[in-house]
Design a protein around this nucleic acid. Structure first.
Lengths: 193, 193
DNA sequence: CAAATTAATGAACATCCGTTCAAAAGCAAA
DNA sequence: TTTGCTTTTGAACGGATGTTCATTAATTTG
């Protein structure tokens, strides 16, 4: 046997990325073999190398794709700092809740990146954090927030918001709207607004 | 060759646990082989099996040890809810900052636990979370906190506090005392106290 | 319909994996 | 010093790992 009937790069390629994403998130990068991915796609392991130069690139591409989508979607808000902060909180929770697997990978598999890849991915994440820090810094300068160390507050808020992903499930006790409302309430109070 | 000069279970045993802890935290459970651990301990892979029945037990024992130490150290505080909450925040940050590798493993390697082990470890973590929830619930009942959903607030605070471990380094810009003070400020405001 | 291109197979590569175990050597007690 | 216990070696087990590549079949192009 060789090429199979109905095989197309436009179908197999995305399937491989989706499957790798799901398996990496479920079991961890190191615990997933190329043969596992291939089996779920319905293909032999060798075929994966028509779509990725190696396993590491599969991981890096997923991470980069996620973080670039995050940066593209998180357009800096207009309006006063309080409105900007509210929009950031709402956006962060909703965007992350929509992509649990991507978020999981981007936070948990950093140590499996080769140094050059780690640097690149970390820079992308940093750019996102800077967006929040700017809001807090501007708000503090304008006297709207009680924030003396905007770096710490940035990291604290992001950790808190991203933590939603560890427990939130669609169809659970709370709707996403309710979650957003509750977290916004906590964040607003925490920054003294 | 066989038994080596100066070899003792009282030395090799702890060394194995320490090395496994460090390597699991640095590279991840699945990416660490028994031969790697053995090499760093200065022993052949077979010798590890005098100290653990298998690799999985090495991981579970490290997690259980950490969580049991956490529960033993986190004695329920006396005093009013506000003082209890302050003590919890301070304790959590300090205890976790002291044990970055244990914390990392206990949060990141859950998916590498066999189902029965996962259930056991998850129950221990839940017992710890319940300590904070009780404080928040009591404080809300006493009218000291503005907290309507104590479960959500519990998870949000724990995520925020544990997030310290992702960036805090001894000898960095901030001392642990300063970190504790800043986070306590945020938590106090967030619960409306 | 023929030729060119695309997409997959399946075997092979060297290496690593967790784990077992008989044999050997150091140590402690008599 | 001899005996018995403790601790480790080193080889071996079957199987899994990431990756390469000649071959072949399906599809697209002309």
């Amino acid at each position: 046997m060789a090429r199979t009937t109905g095989s197309h790069a436009g179908i197999t390629g995305p399937k491989i990325r989706q499957t790798a994403l799901r398996l990496f998130a479920q079991r961890g990068y190191a615990a997933v073999s190329m043969r596992m991915i291939a089996a779920e796609v319905g293909v032999q392991a060798g075929a994966l190398y028509n779509y990725t130069p190696d396993k590491q690139s599969l991981l890096v591409d997923l991470m980069r794709g996620h973080l670039e989508a995050l940066l593209a979607a998180a357009v800096p808000a207009k309006g006063d700092p309080l409105a900007q902060l509210e929009q950031f909180v709402s956006f962060h929770i909703r965007f992350h809740a929509d992509r649990p697997d991507e978020v999981f990978i981007a936070y948990m598999e950093l140590r499996n990146l080769e140094p050059a890849n780690f640097t690149e991915i970390e820079a992308l994440r940093r750019r996102y954090e800077d967006r929040l820090e700017k809001i807090l810094h501007d708000g503090a300068a304008a006297g709207v927030f009680e924030v003396t160390d905007s770096k710490i507050v940035t990291l604290a808020i992001i950790a808190m918001l991203t933590g939603v992903n560890t427990w939130f499930r669609d169809g659970g006790r709370l709707s996403l709207d309710e979650v957003v409302a509750q977290y916004w309430d906590m964040v607003r109070k925490a920054v003294g607004a």
